[in-house]
Amino acid sequence: MPTAPITVHPPLGTGGRRVTARGQILGLAHSDADVIEFLRRAGLPGAEGLLDDPSWVKWRGGRAHHYEAA
């Protein structure tokens, strides 16, 4: 099974989550809106519909959609 191309990494101790696409860092997200903007800039205009699709986005560590410090 192929892995999801987008990874939202565990929350950092200072808050926020690193977002990568196939290993390339897109940015540090503090909200779903940030993730959607990073994905839009990466060429995925329908990004808001991808956040809960495990074939597109893998949420690592912590709960999905939570960005507070670990």
Score class of each variant (00 low, 15 high):
1 M>N: 12
1 M>Q: 11
1 M>A: 15
1 M>P: 12
1 M>S: 15
2 P>H: 12
2 P>I: 06
2 P>D: 13
4 A>C: 09
4 A>P: 11
4 A>H: 03
5 P>L: 08
5 P>G: 11
6 I>N: 05
6 I>F: 10
7 T>R: 12
7 T>N: 05
9 H>C: 10
10 P>D: 03
11 P>R: 07
11 P>C: 02
11 P>E: 02
12 L>V: 02
14 T>M: 10
15 G>P: 08
15 G>C: 08
16 G>I: 08
17 R>A: 08
18 R>Q: 15
18 R>F: 02
19 V>E: 03
19 V>T: 11
20 T>C: 05
20 T>W: 01
20 T>D: 15
21 A>I: 09
22 R>W: 00
22 R>Y: 01
23 G>H: 06
23 G>Q: 03
23 G>L: 03
24 Q>G: 09
24 Q>I: 11
26 L>C: 13
27 G>V: 07
28 L>P: 00
28 L>D: 08
29 A>I: 04
29 A>R: 03
29 A>E: 02
30 H>V: 04
30 H>G: 14
32 D>P: 00
32 D>Q: 02
32 D>R: 04
33 A>M: 01
33 A>K: 12
34 D>Q: 07
35 V>Q: 01
36 I>Y: 03
36 I>K: 05
36 I>E: 01
36 I>L: 03
38 F>E: 03
39 L>K: 07
39 L>F: 06
39 L>A: 09
40 R>Y: 04
40 R>C: 06
40 R>S: 09
41 R>H: 14
41 R>A: 14
42 A>P: 06
43 G>L: 04
43 G>H: 07
44 L>K: 08
45 P>T: 10
46 G>F: 02
49 G>M: 00
49 G>N: 08
50 L>Q: 08
50 L>A: 10
52 D>C: 02
52 D>G: 13
53 D>Y: 01
54 P>L: 07
54 P>S: 14
55 S>F: 05
55 S>E: 14
56 W>M: 13
56 W>C: 07
56 W>S: 09
57 V>Y: 06
59 W>P: 06
59 W>Q: 07
59 W>R: 07
60 R>I: 07
63 R>C: 02
64 A>S: 15
64 A>P: 12
65 H>P: 00
66 H>G: 00
66 H>K: 08
68 E>D: 15
68 E>L: 12
68 E>M: 05
69 A>N: 09
69 A>T: 05
69 A>E: 11
69 A>K: 12
70 A>G: 14
70 A>L: 06
70 A>P: 15
